[in-house]
């Protein structure tokens, strides 16, 4: 079998490839801005009530610690009433699982094919003399 002789890449091509991978990174950073990803939703039910430490269900010790941190009940209420929503969208979950599993399946499968080329070039075809020489060298 003849060894693979890789192409030589010129500087312009090297620059293009470096910029291309950076372009991909920036695109993937900005994509979520165009998709709905915010799972936080403020509790709107308390906004019209008069806020006191008692209405926030804060114990005297907690109140003391909030005050040591420089918060009054109004400022604390904003944080206390800000809650996460963990509702699961089953369709999105299935898509996400398929994407992750599919990605690893693709990468492992193609890697295995490429790895066989590497091993064959490095050690020779399976069962050849090169294999024995390597093992003897060990």
């Amino acid at each position: 079998m003849t060894n693979y002789i890789p192409k030589i890449q010129h500087k312009r091509g090297q620059l293009f490839d470096s910029l291309f991978i950076l372009f991909l990174v920036y695109v993937s950073l900005y994509i979520p801005l165009f998709m709905e990803s915010d799972t936080k939703s403020a509790d709107e039910t308390t906004s019209v009530q008069v806020i006191t430490w008692e209405s926030l269900n804060v114990s005297p010790v907690e109140q003391e610690q909030w005050q040591k941190l420089g918060f009054d009940e109004l400022a604390a209420a904003e944080i206390i009433n800000d809650r996460f929503d963990y509702t699961i969208d089953p369709v999105m979950l299935i898509i996400t699982v398929l994407v992750i599993v599919g990605y690893f399946f693709f990468v492992l499968r193609v890697s295995d094919r490429q790895y066989r080329e590497v091993i064959e070039e490095k050690f020779g075809a399976a069962g050849s003399r090169a294999t024995n020489e390597q093992e003897d060298a060990r």
Binding site: L24, V25, V27, S28, L29, I31, P32, M35, E36, S37, T39, F84, Y86, I88, D89, M92, I95, T96, V99, I100, Y103
Partner: peptide
């Protein structure tokens, strides 16, 4: 649960 859209876009990358 927290960053589903980011997860998909990073996988796309």
């Amino acid at each position: 649960l927290g960053y589903g859209a980011s997860l998909l876009s990073i996988m796309a990358f």
